[in-house]
Design a protein around this nucleic acid. Structure first.
Lengths: 164, 164
DNA sequence: CCTAAAATCACCCTTTAGTATGAACGGACA
DNA sequence: TGTCCGTTCATACTAAAGGGTGATTTTAGG
């Protein structure tokens, strides 16, 4: 702010000085060419031109921040995989629950893949069996867990410790 | 561009007009007070002032403040906390993840109910909206999470801390 | 060896999920 | 005031999931 004020003061001083000089000059010109009526018009025009440009120059000098740069920070969140899941360490299957619900190995496999979001077709491909087989497994699985949907099965299995 | 040119032309025309008017006025004043030597100084000063301010005005009018908005993408690395274990205690929603995936409140609600194993119809009943509305929400949800199935959505949402 | 359970697969059918598109409405915002 | 977004709902369609039944083949155990 102080810098700006100094700059303004300096400009105004310069302006005043040039004004004085010009007035003096014009006075001299006036004395010299007063009698020539036409000359008056000319030098009035000159004055107008000079001071107009002076005004323009002044304005341009003083109003420096013509280019407003608005910096907008857009936050982009980048995921960084933290510690591996299960803060407690490796997931340990609840064998009692497995016993209770009496799931076969294949059914448990299917259940785990379901919980990872795979479709029946994808599970079939991954386990090298047919889609129908997976359907059978999942059907039996749902019966044993007493649920109606795979999402429900996942929720229940997680609660009883069959999957992470 | 044409608009800007027109504007400039208009300003120049206005400027010329005012110049002519002022010259005429000054000519008249000159004739009237020519004999008074002191008056000459005064009106020269007036001319200077007038035209200086005219120049300033012109400059300010013509120089449009160029606004430049720069959008800077600032990467914020977010440690995705491992999904809080059910045994661990209270689940706290990962707001940064929520921010990143830009889920609406309704979409988040649907997601949470899906994770509990509810069907779309059951979700609709519980939220007092139609089945179609739930379908729309879940569709948008899957798009935002970049998944294809509800089970996949649940898995991903759990990993990024959107649901327990 | 024989058998029960598990695993595999098929067919048909119904239900649910998901996609695409359009539209109406209200609040927030510039 | 106009525009964007979220919410709501509808229709029509395709894809996936799920239920029921039956059949064949492994496999483990008495």
């Amino acid at each position: 702010m102080t810098i700006r004020s100094n700059s303004v003061t300096k400009h105004l001083l310069l302006y005043g000085l040039s004004l004085a000089v010009l007035l003096f000059l014009l006075r001299w010109l006036e004395v010299r060419y007063l009698l020539l009526t036409h000359a008056v018009d000319v030098y009035i025009g000159a004055i107008a031109l000079i001071f107009t440009s002076l005004g323009i120059w002044l304005a341009l000098k003083l109003v420096t921040p013509k280019k407003e740069t608005i910096v907008v920070e857009k936050q982009v969140f980048v995921e960084v995989p933290a510690a591996p899941l299960q803060a407690g360490g490796t997931f340990s299957l609840n064998n009692k629950a497995l016993d209770k619900y009496d799931l076969s190995t294949r059914e448990l496999e299917v259940l785990q893949l379901i919980s990872k979001g795979l479709s029946n077709q994808e599970i079939a491909d991954q386990m090298f069996v047919s889609l129908n087989t997976i359907k059978t497994h999942s059907s039996n699985l749902f019966m044993k867990l007493d649920v109606k949907r795979r999402t429900q099965a996942v929720d229940k299995a997680r609660n009883i410790g069959l999957i992470p």
